[in-house]
Computed example of a mutant assay.
Amino acid sequence: MREDMTYYRDLLAEEPWAEVSACWTVIRPSGNTATSRDVVTLLAEKGYAEAEPHTPKDMPLDGVLVWEQHGTICLFERYGSLGLPYDLPEWLSESEAYSLFWDVESNTKISHVRNSKLVAVIDPMEPDDRSGPLNDELRRALRFLEETARDHEDDWQAAALATIETVTGRRLSREWSRERHTCLVPGSPAAENHSITEHRFVSDAELDTALTNASGDIQADAFATLATTLVDRFDLREFPVVAELMTDLPREMRAPSRREVDVREGLIWPLAERFHAGGQAEPFEADPVWRRMQGGEALAIVFGAALSPGGWRDRRDALYHAQLAFGDEWSVIRVRLADQIRSGQPPE
Rank of each mutant, 00 (worst) to 15 (best):
Leu207Tyr: 12
Val302Tyr: 04
Gly266Gln: 13
Met253Trp: 08
Val241Ile: 15
Ile73Ala: 09
Val167His: 08
Asp221Val: 14
Ala158Pro: 02
Ala34Ile: 00
Thr168Gln: 09
Thr182Pro: 06
Arg28Trp: 04
Asp204Gln: 13
Leu75Pro: 05
Tyr320Asn: 01
Asp217Pro: 03
Ala255Met: 15
Ser188Gln: 09
Asp235Val: 11
Pro16Gln: 02
Asn135Glu: 10
Ala210Gln: 13
Asp62Val: 01
Thr55Ile: 02
Ile218Leu: 12
Gln69Val: 00
Arg180Cys: 11
Gly327Lys: 12
Gly83Leu: 09
Arg274Ala: 12
Val121Phe: 04
Ile122Glu: 04
Pro124Trp: 05
Thr228Lys: 14
Tyr79Gln: 14
Phe234Glu: 12
Glu68Pro: 00
Ser106Gly: 07
Arg37Ala: 04
Leu230Phe: 11
Ser188Gly: 15
Arg200Ile: 07
Leu226Ile: 09
Thr55Phe: 04
Gly132Phe: 11
Leu100Asn: 07
Tyr8Glu: 02
Thr228Cys: 09
Met253Thr: 02
Ala222Tyr: 06
Lys57Phe: 03
Leu82Cys: 06
Leu207Asp: 07
Tyr7Asn: 04
Val167Tyr: 02
Thr197Leu: 14
Trp91His: 06
Asp235Glu: 15
Arg2His: 08
Val40Cys: 11
Glu179His: 09
Glu52Asn: 08
Arg150Glu: 13
Leu211Glu: 11
Ala227Gln: 05
Leu226Pro: 03
Asp128Gly: 11
Trp24Gln: 04
Leu142Cys: 07
Arg259Met: 15
Glu68Thr: 01
Ala149Pro: 05
Ile301Phe: 02
Ser30His: 06
Val261Lys: 12
Gln219Ala: 09
Arg180Phe: 04
Leu145Asp: 02
Tyr48Val: 00
Ala13Asp: 08
Thr212Lys: 15
Ala222Val: 13
Phe101Tyr: 14
Ala97Leu: 11
Thr72Trp: 01
Ile196Tyr: 10
Gly80Glu: 05
Thr6Ile: 06
Trp102Phe: 10
Lys109Ala: 12
Arg315Val: 01
Arg291Phe: 05
Met253Arg: 04
Val40Lys: 02
Asp58Met: 03
Thr148Glu: 12
Asp10Gln: 10
Leu230Ala: 10
Val20Glu: 03
Arg200Tyr: 07
Thr197Phe: 13
Thr33Pro: 00
Glu90Met: 07
Thr247Arg: 15
Asp314Pro: 00
Arg139Asp: 06
Leu267Phe: 14
Arg336Ile: 09
Ala243His: 10
Trp290Leu: 05
Val64Lys: 08
Pro85Arg: 01
His321Gln: 10
Ile268Lys: 12
Asp58Cys: 02
Asp103Thr: 00
Asp58Trp: 04
Arg342Ile: 05
Thr168Ala: 09
Leu42Glu: 03
Arg114Ser: 11
Cys23Asp: 10
Asp123Thr: 03
Gln345Cys: 09
Thr209Arg: 15
Phe284Thr: 07
Ala300Glu: 03
Pro124Arg: 10
His276Ala: 08
Asp248Val: 06
Ala255Cys: 14
Gln69Lys: 14
Thr209Ser: 15
Ala222Phe: 11
Ser116Thr: 07
Gln219Pro: 05
Leu92Met: 10
